[in-house]
Design a binder for these strands. Structure first.
Lengths: 212, 212
DNA sequence: ACCTGAACACCGTTCAAGT
DNA sequence: ACCTGAACACCGTTCAAGT
């Protein structure tokens, strides 16, 4: 019976494997991503994956690069500060969307999309006409800001989970021992936390690099 | 034969377990840390560990807190900027010493030592007499800076491995496609990378928070 | 209270075999 | 060229048994 009711499987390829892996990590976290589950979700056996991916390490590298590909690259006719700002904002957004990616970001070898992303930051900074070495230091300041800030936001349970995390904190941590920290959590709970904190500190860095 | 030549085993306890785990992670990376290896190194069987640690998750939390305990807390009679600066510098040093810790930092629930560390930053910032909300935002700016910068330094192979990482980069990444990135790597290779970049950007943030 | 051995339900990956 | 099943060497952890 070759003409069965079962739907014809779409053929597997590298980008379908990577895409499905990203979807699982987005949905359940990167720890829940196993080769067996990934294969099952695609409708194949585990070992089929190894025709399109060298191993799990290779898969993780590819996933990070797929995320990097989502980051905008501004056109060259914007003023340099606008360009750097838009790259940083876009990277921040993308990393928040894929909450597992920030943690892998620094430990994975960069693929083509991430190389293009890094290059675009350097290109924009170079247009600022900074003194020697300032471009290189600015590069680190910017990328560090994006990664550090994103990690920080994610660490305390983003948006939906913020109330839950804060409640757990206030329940488990004695306010008498850590009064300011308790106050800081209340600041977040009150919803008064600056939505523009990311951009504010970013501007501190940009203005520091090229004082008016 | 109770009086054998074999050395009497020192009794196990939580802090010995955590300390040994930190030593393994420092030496071989956190991925190489398995419960079996940890037990073996201490001279016990695997399941003995579970008398002192709830599970591996608990162990990792405890390891991060052991690292946090190494960070200096300045006395209250320093000027606030000096205090914040010394906390940040010390945290940066400590995280560089335990190269696996930065990656866990944000995802682990804080223990007492890390709570004290966070509290100390808030205490120092509060002495600056900043406008409302600035303390809370400054707190994030500082901790983000420390974590982001440390991760960044570690990601490109610290000190000893920098030449190796750079060489691999120049070998694998075509200079024609990424000219500025290639230039940036040469900047690092030339040893001209600012040793004080961490402090420089930190001062940008501090000065931005409290303009003179 | 602390330590141990066997066992269980998982992992990623190798290898030989199919089409 | 791509897919599969069985097998291997690992994991963390449960459980019952020892002292």
């Amino acid at each position: 019976m070759t003409t069965e009711t079962e739907p014809a499987r779409r053929p597997l390829n590298r980008s379908r494997v990577v895409q499905a892996a990203v979807a699982i990590a987005d949905r359940e976290g990167v720890d829940a991503l196993t080769m067996r589950k990934l294969a099952g979700e695609l409708g194949y056996e585990v070992m089929s994956l190894y025709n399109h991916v060298a191993n799990k390490d290779d898969l993780l590298d590819a996933m990070v690069d797929a995320v990097a590909a989502e980051i905008d690259i501004p056109s060259a006719d914007n003023p340099w500060k606008t360009a750097v700002r838009s790259i940083a904002m876009s990277a921040h957004d993308v990393l928040l969307r894929h909450s597992w990616a920030s943690a892998l970001w620094s430990s994975r070898w960069p693929g083509p999309a991430r190389l293009r992303h890094m290059e675009s930051i350097l290109v924009a900074l170079e247009r600022a006409g900074l003194p020697a070495g300032a471009v290189d230091m600015g590069f680190h300041a910017i990328t560090m800001h994006v990664q550090g800030f994103t990690l920080q936001k994610l660490s305390f349970g983003l948006a939906a989970n913020l109330d839950e995390s804060a409640a757990r904190f206030l329940r488990e941590v004695p306010a008498d021992d850590y009064p300011r920290l308790t106050g800081h959590v209340h600041y977040h709970l009150a919803g008064s936390s600056q939505p523009g904190a990311f951009g504010f500190v970013l501007d501190l860095i940009l203005d520091g690099l090229a004082p008016a």
